[in-house]
Amino acid sequence: MSSLSETRDDVRSTFTEETSEDLVVASFGDMPDPRLREIMNSLVRHLHAFVKEVGLDQREWEQGIQFLTATGQKCDPTRQEFILLSDVLGVSMLVDAITNATEPRATDSTVLGPFHMVDSPARELGSWIGEVGAGEQALIRGRVLSADGTPLPRALVDVWQADEQGFYDVQVPDRVSEGHLRGLFTTGADGVFWFRTVVPAPYPIPTDGPVGDLLEATRRHPYRPAHVHFIAGAEGHRPVTTHIFVEGSPHLDSDAVFGVKESLVKPFVLVDDPRLAQAHGLDGPFRLCEFDLVLEQADSR
């Protein structure tokens, strides 16, 4: 026959709406990794609180499971639907803000995005990063600097972008080869980088999967303003993942993934100077964008 105290213990261990969080958190009590325990405990408490707050029923739970399953099934070597989901929910930018709080002189970071899925080909400074001659010509140049203004030689600058129609190479493999509008550059002794490309177009994030269904159901548009992606790194410095956004582009104030920061919006100035164009291997008027990538020193935090 059970004692009264044993009966009370059994009651306390019964899974109910009131006891759910405590019971699941207690199940992680022997977890040896303190950081994992902290994350799991907080996840469980917030998740259970969410379920209780909205009164999630069985049908809605099943729909949620189906949505997450479909999200995983949409992922492949060139498509990361979970990153896309994180992006449109603002989680990617929140993690970026927490992780990359930098000193004020450093270049602002922003999201990686779902299309950094292949290695950028190494290219010489000044190279065309595109492999087909379409779109408005652009010259992008700048320097990689330390936060104190010192140029950083042999810094790596990884670049990728959409084309003039708003597509990345991995989205249109029947039209362009892998590496189109991508490049990996090494700066010279003066920290300078420059390359030739086309002005990218604004584009919708992929909407043919569950994230697109979510945006449609919530009446949100899927568009991103025109931009070029960068990852810059140098010895002794923290790398930065960032974009430059084309000034005047549509959707700068409503980016579907919340990635726009005012400091990253840059003018693409029209240059109609035949001699300057010829000096840079261009055959007519072009757009010029100049900016510096400023890196925080690794030991500055």
Rank of each mutant, 00 (worst) to 15 (best):
R79G: 02
R79T: 08
R79M: 14
E81Y: 11
E81F: 07
E81D: 11
F82I: 06
G90L: 04
V91Y: 06
V91P: 06
L94A: 12
D96H: 12
A97G: 11
A101F: 09
T102C: 05
T102L: 14
T102Q: 04
A106P: 02
T107R: 05
T107H: 08
T107S: 13
D108H: 09
T110V: 07
G113M: 07
P114R: 04
F115W: 08
F115P: 00
H116R: 09
H116C: 12
M117R: 11
V118Q: 12
V118N: 01
D119Q: 10
R123F: 03
R123K: 13
R123M: 15
E124H: 07
G126T: 06
I129R: 00
I129G: 00
I129V: 06
E131D: 08
V132C: 01
V132Y: 02
E136D: 14
Q137R: 13
A138M: 13
R141A: 13
R141D: 15
G142S: 12
A147W: 01
D148G: 13
G149I: 08
G149S: 13
P151W: 08
P153M: 14
R154M: 11
L156R: 14
V157E: 05
D158P: 03
V159H: 02
Q161M: 14
A162S: 09
Q165A: 08
Y168C: 04
V170S: 03
V170W: 00
Q171A: 12
V172N: 10
D174R: 10
D174S: 09
R175F: 11
R175W: 11
V176Y: 05
S177M: 07
S177K: 12
G179R: 02
H180R: 01
L181T: 00
G183D: 11
L184Q: 10
T186A: 14
T187P: 04
G188H: 02
G188P: 12
A189M: 06
G191W: 01
F193E: 00
W194E: 10
W194R: 05
F195N: 01
F195R: 00
T197S: 14
T197K: 05
P200L: 01
P200K: 00
P202D: 03
Y203V: 02
P206S: 12
D208F: 09
G209Q: 06
G209F: 03
P210Q: 01
